[in-house]
């Protein structure tokens, strides 16, 4: 089975290039994941560089662009891929080396939406003797947003994020923003919505829906963004 893999070491290569690798058909078992295949290929060329950690779709470190689609290599079966399998780093962010990209801007956008619970005023201390209770229904509203593993598959397939990665929050950060906006225990809902009501931060989203199509966890950032917009509207009417 043939693989065509993006190679680039900024320190030594003048330009990126595609390198062809080959795996013996007998080596490609039915249940082999792409990450397994990459590990075998790395035995052929130990300089081949990619990230991975949990190997079970939980840590979000091995996002890459495979045959034009952003995926997690550890949960993508090799047998489902059309050969030659073309593997590139996820687009839109700087390449550090081969398939490893610099995700700083992505994380900065995540940080910018204050992705933590704010159940008290800044000068108030939290009463640790009492739990912050939620009804099952209130808890249910968080479903579909808290499961994000920050792999970046969505943001790096979003054209709006490609154009303005330093100003547009992007789908993952906005999904996280939604998670805290709808949390019944958070008291900063209004401030959060006000902060998000911005021509760049939220409204660069043009409903292209690449984000939703590429999320390996089956989440729907595009819907979350639309929900944020209607919550902003509701806030204005209230």
């Amino acid at each position: 089975m043939q693989f065509s893999i993006y190679r680039y070491q900024p320190q030594t290569d003048a330009e990126p290039f595609m390198q062809t690798f080959e795996l013996d058909e007998a080596q490609v078992t039915d249940d082999m994941m792409l990450l397994g295949a990459l590990e075998l290929l790395r035995e052929q060329d130990p300089t081949l560089t990619f990230r991975s950690s949990c190997k079970e779709g939980v840590c979000g470190s091995d996002g890459m662009n495979v045959n034009g689609q952003n995926v997690l290599s550890c949960i993508t079966r090799v047998r489902t891929l059309k050969a030659p399998v073309v593997i590139r780093p996820m687009p839109g962010l700087p390449v550090i080396r081969d398939l490893v990209i610099d995700m700083d801007l992505f994380y900065q956008q995540y940080e910018a939406v204050d992705p933590y619970l704010q159940p008290t005023q800044p000068n108030q201390t939290i009463d640790l003797d009492h739990e912050l209770l939620q009804s099952p229904e209130e808890r249910e509203r968080l479903d579909g947003s808290y499961e994000c593993i920050l792999c970046g598959c969505c943001a790096t397939s979003c054209p709006s994020f490609w154009w303005n990665p330093d100003q547009f929050h992007g789908p993952a950060a906005l999904l996280a923003a939604r998670r805290f906006v709808v949390d019944s225990r958070d008291i900063t809902t209004r401030d959060r919505l006000e902060k998000l009501d911005d021509v760049y931060k939220t409204f660069r989203c043009r409903n292209i829906q690449n984000c939703t199509a590429s999320c390996p966890k089956g989440l729907n950032p595009s819907q979350a963004i639309n929900e944020l917009k209607s919550l902003m509207l509701k806030k204005q009417v209230d």
């Binding site: 009501d197 021509v199 409204f203 917009k229 204005q236």
Partner: peptide
Amino acid sequence: MSRLLTGLKAHLW
């Protein structure tokens, strides 16, 4: 100028 009529308001208008 980029902030004249922005965000949700722009969207609604």
